[in-house]
Write a protein that binds this DNA or RNA. Structure first.
Lengths: 170, 170
DNA sequence: TGTCTATCATAACCCTGATTACTATAATCG
DNA sequence: CGATTATAGTAATCAGGGTTATGATAGACA
């Protein structure tokens, strides 16, 4: 346990474990509310940006457009959001939260806070502050390096634009 | 940004984001290696506990037995693990890593370390140490509270055992 | 010995996230 | 104007995680 023979306590695993356990706990504690944690994140963003397109919202919550698309599918049939045609762009849909969705945010946030407290029990206020700060730092770093170095898939296709590569193979 | 009007920077979201971004980055950077991060976690545990049962291993990596079961399915057909009948218990299977799997650990770990460095760039050694410690603390807290309070689904069915409830409704 | 219960593995099904590929529509440029 | 390129949304498919349910087998105990 001291010299850590296993890689289990590396940053990556700890992060994944903490995140998974947190989500699991949250889902357990809020089964009575008809909104999942991922949906809550989306609603939280959307209700501060009513009317944005799916692509824009996907960027805001930092998931792939396809991922968001299915979320919206489910959330729409659950009555949490509505899609409306953008009058200026026939490709785009504008998204809006429903009152039902907005009403669920507060109770969910309370459940969440209780679990955060549970999780951080025994950590000093200073440690908690530092933790949030470090996590935010990491998120920033990763967002940036992903933006600047979008793929770099090991053996790296040369920096030509993607469609040129496609043409080559087509 | 200061008084945080959005719940986006709460512990839960930060943790989820950091974890997701990290995993995404890792998967991007190691597509050339035939093992995913989740599989790596499992192999890392298993190669220190060769021959354990699926249930035991599931407990070690803290996922549900069913989740692990599917991992083993895929990993078995990928030639990363083998299942063998436990001679003492005909229900159980004993798990073993293959040489192929063990050989992949080091390269993967190197990729991972590079990403950890990327993610933590700009954090002091002390901040990094604190971060790991706080995360480990959180993982411990959540594991424990889950163990002591396995369900507690909000309005809580009374503490009777689950099957009694089933009988009542059946 | 024979039920009753707990445990192992796993099937079936839902949610989250990503990649790839395709359609429809905008936008841009020759 | 017309072809090319870029963008919005989404279907299909794969990995990961979870819950519920089921068939076998162990174990406990009357």
């Amino acid at each position: 346990m001291k010299d850590d023979p296993h890689p289990i306590s590396s940053l990556g695993f700890l992060l994944a474990d903490a995140s998974r356990l947190m989500r699991r706990r949250f889902d357990q504690k809020s089964r009575d509310i008809e909104m999942t944690s991922a949906q809550m994140r989306i609603i939280a963003r959307l209700c501060r940006n009513e009317g944005t397109s799916q692509a824009a919202l996907a960027a805001l919550v930092e998931v792939e457009p396809m991922t968001l698309c299915r979320h919206i599918d489910r959330m729409e049939s659950a009555g949490l959001v509505v899609r409306e045609q953008d009058p200026h762009d026939r490709r785009a849909r504008m998204l809006f939260t429903t009152a039902k969705a907005r009403q669920l945010i507060e109770p969910l946030r309370q459940r969440a806070d209780a679990i955060f407290e549970e999780a951080q029990a025994g950590l000093s206020p200073e440690a908690r502050r530092q933790l949030l700060e470090s996590l935010a730092h990491i998120v920033r770093n990763l967002s940036e390096s992903e933006a600047s170095d979008p793929e770099s898939a090991a053996e790296a296709t040369s920096p030509r634009s993607r469609h040129e590569t496609e043409e080559a193979s087509a």
